[in-house]
Design a protein around this nucleic acid. Sequence first.
DNA 1: TGAGTTAGAATGGCACCACCCGTC
DNA 2: GACGGGTGGTGCCATTCTAACTCA
Lengths: 197, 197, 197, 197
Amino acid sequence: MFIAIVSLKGGVGKTTTAIHLSTYLHTDKPTLLIDADPNRSALVWAREDNLPFIVASQAGSATFVPKHSHIITDMKARPEEDDLLDLAKGNDLIIIPTTPNHLDLDATIKAVNFFKKHNVNNYKILLTKVDSRTTNSKTAKQFLIRENIPLFKTEIPLLIAFERASQNGKTVKDYHDSRGKQAWKQYESVGKEIINL
Amino acid sequence: MFIAIVSLKGGVGKTTTAIHLSTYLHTDKPTLLIDADPNRSALVWAREDNLPFIVASQAGSATFVPKHSHIITDMKARPEEDDLLDLAKGNDLIIIPTTPNHLDLDATIKAVNFFKKHNVNNYKILLTKVDSRTTNSKTAKQFLIRENIPLFKTEIPLLIAFERASQNGKTVKDYHDSRGKQAWKQYESVGKEIINL
Amino acid sequence: MFIAIVSLKGGVGKTTTAIHLSTYLHTDKPTLLIDADPNRSALVWAREDNLPFIVASQAGSATFVPKHSHIITDMKARPEEDDLLDLAKGNDLIIIPTTPNHLDLDATIKAVNFFKKHNVNNYKILLTKVDSRTTNSKTAKQFLIRENIPLFKTEIPLLIAFERASQNGKTVKDYHDSRGKQAWKQYESVGKEIINL
Amino acid sequence: MFIAIVSLKGGVGKTTTAIHLSTYLHTDKPTLLIDADPNRSALVWAREDNLPFIVASQAGSATFVPKHSHIITDMKARPEEDDLLDLAKGNDLIIIPTTPNHLDLDATIKAVNFFKKHNVNNYKILLTKVDSRTTNSKTAKQFLIRENIPLFKTEIPLLIAFERASQNGKTVKDYHDSRGKQAWKQYESVGKEIINL
DNA sequence: TGAGTTAGAATGGCACCACCCGTC
DNA sequence: GACGGGTGGTGCCATTCTAACTCA
């Protein structure tokens, strides 16, 4: 399975999503994560070799690709329109992580409209950084459903466990934190939604 | 005064910082905010004309510039290295907003190292989205001080008031709410730090 | 009271001793710590302003000295012989921290012999970094007593609390750690031995 | 091969490192250890003639040098800046032993920055006195990797065997003890890293 | 050499408080 | 403006781990 993680704005949990979906899919079949973001965040995360799967830069990924069943691409933020169309063709699924934040959502809608215009259908929105204390994820969800925009049922909560994991170069699955278990459950749940597509 | 807001990663509160510093400086002298980010977030924010100052796109800013004393540029995320050097030359101050998040900080360090290498000194880090419940802003602050990286004393807290304000196209100053007041106080404090430079 | 902390080898807890004795004496009368070590370790420790007393570099200490009753000097490791004699004349007490380690002890004996040769008597050995699991502090103690070398009754244990405190720029007194309390008790006990001299 | 062992702070295992690396390299080719530290610790260690290689003082090393293939210098702690540059030029490799201790690390960073400033690249950090019960070596390692500072993969553990060996003027290799074996393995591993450079 | 004991550190669970959000 | 809820931090306790000592 080929999956690309794409977003028009940074700071929406793109790399966190790429890392944890790779972790989940790797429990299914050998998975490769290609870091195509010039920030190299996924490579920084993998720097200490605590991840269960391989992370490669785009330039260095060629030799790894044939040996893996799932290929996940952590795309750069704000790709060119041509890149977007190429990604849509070259992947089974485009995941667009978005926070319920007004400006982030605005940017995501623009991307969705672009996809609609070019008859691209293999994308799905993932709501991230959802603060359980606020209600704006509910508003965002209602809006997306009303507009018939494909959306993962699962939302990713805003939890310190993700930050802790990134500091240690681990995933929240391996980072045993008293409150962090639910963090992994959510990405597990997203992974199941993907497998069931 | 010419100020550029720059960051290597998105989602660090770059636009929020640009909007609110413009609001503060506008109480001093006529201020223009140039939105140079292709996401046009500042222009979206200004869409309903509730802001006290003018927001212009980079292309459309020429006629406004001569009439304003303070010019603030909301740069695109991850500018080219040449752009960075041009910005440093063309502005009195470069503000780099950063969350205490590990990966964001890593990207900021890279930018700072780039500035150091090219003898650029007119930049200053602004810690944003600081969750008062966590301690990682303290860690980040310690690190930056240890490395002698210029840093605003004031930190911007993570408050829902900023999101509310962006939804309504207002600033937290105009958003009359018990919680909005402390949000505004922080940017006011950053503004004073800038004026006192 | 004028006290100098001196050692011929580094890494014996010289700075840790200076910081914590200053903390204790400061509860008695205003205390100044002069960092005369080119490593500036005490100044690094004080960098975040969490210490209850003032730390000054040797060059910048002049204005502070008259206002303080206790002056503690954290001397550089391996001072010149002339420096040693000057220190002995200019201070009420020379404290020589030493680990029970064979090579450290060897260096300390050399210093003691030098003092004996020049009829210097106002020095006292402080055993530091004593690992409670080992027995070599007992051997070291016996040796020093047999040779009639003045020695503090109290020993400083090897505890992680000291490292934690230094990381946070605090003293073990202020660093509330379940096991850190005994760490403070030991320096308190050394302080009492000094006062009772 | 010419190797210098250098550190800005004492008590980091500089002499222990010099002795044991000499032991390892001597199994390869004739090795000479020059003790350039005024504490003469390596000479004290060699006093009872139990070491497999020759230890010479700097003053007395001239006649031995031509007869040996590997020359290791145990430099004094906190050498002058000019000494550092001369060492870097005159040796194939500079080894900087450092404990994971906060203040020691701080001093090491300063040395590294000095090297960077003068385009010296032939240095490598060796983490020493690592207490396997604590986690601070992990933190130190992360920091060094993050800053792209060259680091030996192998760490030297804090073991009583090293102290025992020094007391007896032997190396941990010759100190036949269940605990001495793992101690020796680590320096053996460092030696292999050096040979493979 | 090997097993048992001990000290110190890390970890995980639990109770507690602090902070911010939503609601009334 | 006061309340309840959710998450993060801290302190406390029990458990586990490593390495040192001791004894057989």
